[in-house]
Computed example of a mutant assay.
Amino acid sequence: MSLFIGLMSGTSLDGVDGVLVDFWAGATRTMAAAHVPFAPALRAELLALQTPGANEIEREALAANQLAIHYADCVTRLLGVADIKAADVRAVGAHGQTIRHRPELGFTRQSNNPALLAELCGIDVIADFRSRDVAAGGQGAPLVPAFHHSVFGAPGKTRVVANIGGIANISVLHGDGQVGGFDTGPGNVLLDGWIQRHQGQPYDADGAWAAGGQLLPGLLTALLDEPYLALPAPKSTGRDLFHLAWLDAQLAAFPAAAPQDVMHTLTRYTAVTLADAIHRAAPAADAVYVCGGGAHNAQLQAALQAALGPGIALATTDALGIPPQHVEALAFAWLAWRCQERQPGNLPTVTGAQGERILGALYPR
């Protein structure tokens, strides 16, 4: 066996997703999966750290320690489910929590304490996957298209994998082996923030609240005027751009907008920006496969299918053998495996880096 653990805590800040994977002989076999929700105080602090604030260096370091403890908890659960010893796992791939992403300024910051994680779980830890790509002139994101190509690519078919986390991104897997991809814009980040503000809920379960609202065409048009959407790839984004203060600025021109109608319109916004990106980047796509938290939002999926049109089939990655909630954690287990094998993990055609690079920094157990 060639066992690796992948850990992912994304922009939605709901917690840690983890998988234990066997990559023996080039296969990708998931042996266990686990989810550890964030404690409310940690989630609030990680959210607060997305913007500059007082004493943020110390606060970020303390949050990183707590994050490592949550990661270690997830590792323990995975080992228990699979009845595997820590010594049998070659490495843990831990992405960390993105709190700043400014590749145009030459940096990206993922909060993490991989040294503490290695100490707590007794397994080699590989972290800091994005910075080498940024150092080579790339965006440092998205990094998942290389993994998507390895597990979802099919000769002769053009497939799009749409990851709808806090931010949405696509991987375009062309039938001739070429791969493209970029961040399309907001996924769940605005939806989660808006419903938490008005309903006190962390997310819109199955899109039920959005389904009861009405489209605000003027607001949708204003949202679609965001300059990021028209930028050519390679490009990436995050909470540095798409956040509630950004939304509030757009809403200033619509003071009478009902909150539920705004929610409906935001759901449509995620769907339309994704579909527009797919139509531009993969007009001949045979199918779109959705992963991430947005795959479980029925209202969002219906809006995405309507925006794509009848000529493109829509499904989740379940149809390709991997549950939507496992895909990103699997990707970082794969990136850790690539690092251990001294193989590149980025795609310059996606990130814009000057060339292929081995991604990740090793923290031995």
Rank of each mutant, 00 (worst) to 15 (best):
D225N: 11
A91Q: 02
M31S: 10
T317C: 03
A154F: 04
L362D: 03
Q305K: 14
D133G: 09
D206F: 09
Q260L: 11
A136Y: 00
A154V: 14
T98M: 09
F242A: 07
G175I: 04
P255D: 03
D225V: 00
T273V: 15
H174T: 02
A210F: 02
A336R: 13
V36N: 10
G360V: 07
V75F: 04
F152E: 11
L47M: 14
G18R: 04
G355S: 04
A258T: 05
L335A: 07
G96V: 05
G213T: 00
Q97P: 06
E56C: 08
H326K: 12
M8R: 08
P142G: 05
P103Y: 12
A230N: 10
I195V: 15
A281M: 13
Q325L: 12
A271Y: 03
D192A: 09
G294S: 06
L220A: 06
G200M: 11
S171V: 06
W334Q: 11
A39R: 15
D276K: 09
P114G: 09
I164D: 02
L231G: 02
R197T: 12
A307V: 01
G360L: 07
I358R: 12
A222H: 06
V89S: 09
P227V: 02
A336T: 13
R109K: 06
G360S: 09
L3C: 09
V21N: 01
V151E: 08
R365W: 00
G355N: 04
V179Q: 10
A302F: 01
V189T: 13
I358L: 08
T11A: 06
A281H: 10
I57G: 05
D206H: 14
A210K: 02
I278P: 03
W246Q: 10
A61T: 14
L3F: 10
Q196F: 12
H243E: 14
L117E: 03
H264Y: 09
R280K: 13
I278E: 05
N65T: 15
L224F: 00
F254D: 06
A205F: 11
H101N: 07
P186V: 01
R268T: 12
E226Y: 00
R90T: 14
H326S: 09
P232G: 10
G10E: 10
A245Y: 04
N188A: 11
Y228S: 04
P114W: 05
P114K: 07
A27P: 00
P155G: 04
E328G: 05
A205N: 13
T51C: 03
R365V: 01
H70I: 03
L46C: 14
A61D: 12
A298W: 00
I164F: 02
A94P: 01
G218W: 01
A298V: 13
A287P: 08
L120F: 08
G352N: 07
R132F: 06
P364H: 07
D183Q: 10
V272H: 07
G212C: 09
H95W: 04
R342I: 08
G53P: 00
A230T: 13
D204N: 12
A48S: 14
A146P: 03
K85Q: 14
P52E: 00
Q139K: 01
A307I: 00
V134S: 05
I164G: 02
Q301N: 14
A319K: 09
H198C: 02
A82H: 04
G177M: 03
A87V: 12
L330M: 15
E328V: 05
D183R: 10
A353C: 11
H198P: 02
G93F: 03
R102D: 03
